[in-house]
Amino acid sequence: MTKSELIKNISAQYPQLSVRDIEMATRHMLDYLSDALAEGERIEIRGFGSFSMHVRPAKQGRNPKTGESVMVPEKRVPHFKPGKELREQVDYPENTSGKA
């Protein structure tokens, strides 16, 4: 499913709102989520999961070709941890039977 298919799908659920409004809202939502994450904020959606920034500190590394010591700069990687409901809905039913 792509962004435009997602927008179409949501529009079908909310015919009282125009496709244009839903499209605008979805795009702003994604921009807002991206900006919040980039600023290092944590996003927590119950039942869906949480997004956070993982920071890999700068470290001393080596150029494998020359053996030369180099400083590897700090790396910031956005991370997603699926929530319980999402995990259970995606997993094989036999793994979650009786729990979900």
Binding site: G47, F48, L86, V90
Partner: peptide, 27 residues
């Protein structure tokens, strides 16, 4: 509020059906 709810619910049920969700720019 409803749209935010629908956004995450739709992504979740799509993933549950085994289909991936590609949101260009976001991930």
């Amino acid at each position: 509020k409803r749209l935010v709810e629908a956004f995450f619910d739709t992504i979740r049920s799509t993933l549950a059906s085994g289909e991936e969700v590609k949101l260009s720019g976001f991930g």
